[in-house]
């Protein structure tokens, strides 16, 4: 709980917000051109005071929470012709610091909802209307796939065969036999070869690898469970 080293003023409203947006940025393969951010609860009420809008924008630009460019993020975004809209809404019975991030470019679209839990810790719980669970503490493999028998076992086997150790795994489907999504947190990044192999499996629709956004320095450095 010493850390992160970060640009102020708030570990939850600045550093955590930046990390959520950074993860959202990586759900697209190319940089976003348009972004809509819907803020809930304390995020909506105190966004200006905490630099939340700057931090979210910085994350979409690919900056980490210690980046000295964060205070200028909105003007940098403007220069790069990244069109950002902020909105406030009641997202229901969720953590007070919750944001929904919608990103778009010419060919892709993504939707991510997550919460900033305090001290810079975060949790993502929705991507493209699928339920997920991950923290940004590890490399996260996102797999959108057809709901059929043996998919989870097969993917887990491929990861194990390549010496990937799974920290957490969450899987949910929209309906039986429909589409499903897995979020898998892995101790080290999988090689490109393995990612390519997984991408080409017949039942895989879509694969993304999201970076570890909380510097992997163990629980003492502000990455602990604070919920």
């Amino acid at each position: 709980m010493i850390g992160p080293i970060m640009i102020g003023p708030s570990s939850s409203h600045t550093a955590g917000a930046c990390r959520l947006a950074l993860l959202a940025r990586h759900t697209l393969q190319r940089p976003a051109e348009r972004a809509k951010l819907t803020l809930h609860g304390s995020f909506a009420k105190t966004a200006k005071g905490h630099g939340t809008e700057l931090a979210l924008t910085a994350g979409i630009l690919g900056y980490y929470p210690h980046d000295p460019r964060i205070p200028q993020a909105l003007s940098i975004a403007k220069k790069q012709q990244l069109d950002i809209v902020f909105d406030a809404a009641d997202l229901g019975d969720v953590h007070p610091n919750t944001v929904c991030i919608e990103l778009e470019n010419r060919t892709e679209k993504s939707h991510l909802t997550g919460s900033s839990l305090g001290g810079g810790s975060i949790q993502v719980f929705e991507i493209d209307a699928f339920e997920v669970r991950f923290s940004g503490r590890y490399h996260t493999l996102l797999l959108r796939h057809v709901d059929q028998t043996g998919v989870i076992a097969h993917v887990a086997q491929v990861i194990a065969d390549n010496e990937g150790n799974i920290a957490t795994l969450y899987s949910a489907r929209q309906k039986k036999g429909g589409e499903a999504m897995m979020s898998i947190e892995i101790d080290k990044r999988l090689s490109q070869y393995v990612l390519d192999y997984l991408t080409h499996l017949p039942y895989i629709r879509w694969l993304r690898i999201l970076p570890e956004v909380i510097s992997g320095e163990g629980h003492l450095s502000g990455t602990g469970d604070v919920a």
């Binding site: 709980m1 850390g3 640009i7 102020g8 708030s10 570990s11 001290g119």
Partner: peptide, 21 residues
């Protein structure tokens, strides 16, 4: 005050309370 100026600080455990430790 560094924190309030959006300067660089170490959260401990949060940024708003970063001066105490």
């Amino acid at each position: 005050e560094e924190n309030a100026r959006m300067g660089r600080i170490v959260a401990a455990p949060t940024a708003g309370s970063a001066g105490t430790v």
